[in-house]
Design a protein around this nucleic acid. Sequence first.
DNA 1: ACCCCTGTTCGGCG
DNA 2: CCGCCGAACAGGGG
Length: 264
Amino acid sequence: MPELAEVEYFRRQWSAGIGNRVMKIAHHADKRVFRGTDTRILRKELAGARLLTSEARGKRMLFRFSNENWLGLHLGMSGKMQTARPDFRPQKHDHFVLYQRERALVFTDARQFGRVQFHHGKTAPAWWENGVPEIVSAKFNRPFLDRFLHRHRKAPIKAVVLMQSGFSGIGNWMADEILWRAQISPSKLASKLSAGERDELFRATKFVARESLRIIGPDDSALPRTWLIHERWRAGGKCPRHKTVLRRATIGGRTTAWCPKCQK
DNA sequence: ACCCCTGTTCGGCG
DNA sequence: CCGCCGAACAGGGG
């Protein structure tokens, strides 16, 4: 589930712990979510540290703790976060739990495509500063979009919209939503978009990102019924505009749903 | 049993 | 060297 909006939702699930100290940590050290991270150091440094702030950029999250400690989280395909009672007992897929006096901050990820990273230092870790603009920021503008489309001109637009180096936080369902709204066929090469289509792509990208972030919840149930997301996985799913049956194919390596009538 | 999956990385290849 | 593509990762669900 986790794309930009869900990531933001899950990030906030830990906000109740801000200002509070970590008393104890539970984790499954040998699990893939800790690849590249020394969990002994993570445990040692975070124990006793206070959670200060958190931020999300695209699908990535950064949690800042006292004593110059930083925790990076990525939810992968199946990651979730929650705040639980302080006597929370981790189950099989609860790979990382920070216990505070009054609650437990839980990171769960069955498929383990997600990731837990740790950094100790005065400033945010190097991997946090990747230079990719947030979609809702002014830095994601037409010149940036046009340059990005040109650089990836030989790829189908669906694949381009999935690239985190340009469309920070956009995943499969948001990409389909954006292209449907912009009325662009997902298989069209980036170089083939007209100026008008680039305009629509820009507007749709901003709109879907902003609206999703505003409406955020643990799933898609709060999103408007007029959005494509409610139809895209259903057998016989129809275009919300004029009820044409949606088409499906693998494009850019991912299952893609689109309306053959309005997306050209 | 078999197939599918809202993500990312890596090696092959053009 | 650049960049696209498919495979691999791991587990749950239809």
